[in-house]
Design a protein around this nucleic acid. Structure first.
Lengths: 169, 169
DNA sequence: GTCTATAGTGGGATAGAC
DNA sequence: GTCTATCCCACTATAGAC
């Protein structure tokens, strides 16, 4: 039998990914494991600690994906990074929102994880101001798409291409 | 005596702007007006209808600001629009979040308001794909700044300048 | 490490009297 | 158009028994 903390995080992640942030409650997590909510507090101090684990998972997965994308297409780094970033967010919309809404609980995350996630972009775009601008563009594109903010007939692919081209030139 | 619906919206807005979305409850709104929460339902069908009024206010104010910015500095439209957009969001962070988090309640908004808000940017950037990319950049910059996502020492002004320059060229 | 019981807090919304 | 009374919901978290 796997250790409880891991089971708890796995259950939390499945709830978040399949039903969204509103479903991520201590009761629902406990239900999934066939135990009662108060029992969770023997393994995690509070809900924020569980959420921090999910955020750390997401950041690590994005970091992996970005590193792989950069390694596979180093000749057009921005296009590769953008496609990988968007694909991750669309595949994990609720986790992406949890990771990006509000301030990061930095004190609960592994040291260096945030920097590792940013590293592929920083390598591809050495100027820090430009890198920040590209990040904002990518995040804006993703979150507007997730929130259904673009018109239904909008050509999101082309907007991505045009934006990344502007930053590549 | 002003009509109640207007008073309700005014109270809601003050709550939202000064204390954030968590403070925007029917009970708190009623408290501000010296009445009980159930009385609000004689004027609005539900909370979402009150929120929609706030969103409509925000969209109209951004539209006004963008139109003014474009009129005053037509020779560098993107810089003017970007500065105006950022200034509005920083001045009204909670309202900006309410306006941009999640799907718009389009069925509760005045016809044409969303389009009017977008119009100044569309005029400045006729290519629709490029306009969408600029919007994503601006929204991304704003929301990352509001959420404290940039490092404390980040030079946000320069990131804006670099990003807008990329889209102007 | 699990349970029961419960505290404490809050929310949106409705019924019906006045 | 306001009130009182109330429903029903949900949540995080703790205490203490086992």
């Amino acid at each position: 039998m796997a250790d409880r903390p891991r089971q708890i995080v796995d259950a939390a992640r499945e709830l978040l990914e399949t039903e969204g942030a509103d479903a991520l409650t201590m009761r629902r997590i406990a239900d999934k494991l066939g135990i009662r909510a108060p029992s969770l507090y023997k393994h995690f101090p509070d809900k924020q600690a569980v959420e921090a684990e999910l955020i750390a998972q997401g950041l690590a997965e994005i970091a992996d994906a970005q590193e792989a994308a950069l390694a596979e297409a180093p000749e057009r780094p921005l296009v590769a990074l953008g496609a990988s970033y968007r694909a991750y967010a669309l595949a994990h919309p609720h986790l992406y929102r949890l990771m990006t809404e509000g301030p990061l609980p930095r004190h609960l995350l592994p040291d260096g994880l945030e920097a590792r996630t940013a590293l592929p972009l920083v390598k591809a775009v050495p100027d820090e101001h430009r890198a920040r601008a590209v990040w904002a563009f990518a995040h804006g594109m993703v979150i507007l798409e997730l929130d259904g903010r673009f018109p239904p007939d909008a050509d999101v692919d082309t907007a991505w291409r045009v934006g990344l081209a502007a930053f590549s030139g």
